[in-house]
Amino acid sequence: MFRTSLRQTSRAFNLVARRTYAEAAATGGLKLNFSLPHEALYENVSVTQVNIPAVSGVSGILANHVPTIEELGSGVVDVIEGSGVKKSFFVSGGVATVQPGSKLSITAVEAFPVDAFSPEAIKAKLAEAQKNVTSADAEVAAEAAIQVDVLTALQAVAK
């Protein structure tokens, strides 16, 4: 527990340290590649900041972030575009990599704008998944557990 809090503080610290670094750097900004198997949401678009729901905790990525690879859990990817407009996408999972040279690649299996979800449908699905968690069939139970994870994360953001 101490370790995670330590990590988070160090992360936050890094973020602050890098924020100044980013501002000092040329205004090239962060190049974002956000792609799904069936759609490319962003292809080499310059953005200001991207928040990603990594498994190890939510983190914000600015220009000149240190290269890193993060596994994404289910959660919201916030993209703050150059003009200051913020767009939120809910992803079910994926991988985010910061490449050397201020380039962020996010590959997710599915991503939809947060306001495209219907809260009623989520509630119904969640109830069904919760029922299946206790199933005797291990496979069904595992699938349901993942569903519950994703749906609770989704329920928290979709309004």
């Binding site: 792609s35 198997p37 292809e43 290269p67 050397p100 690649s105």
Partner: peptide, 19 residues
């Protein structure tokens, strides 16, 4: 079209391995 999209997807994915 599907191929072009999957290529973009793959590039994003395989860049790590090149680096």
């Amino acid at each position: 079209k599907a191929m072009a999209l999957s290529r973009v997807y793959d590039e994003a994915d395989s860049e790590v391995y090149t680096h």
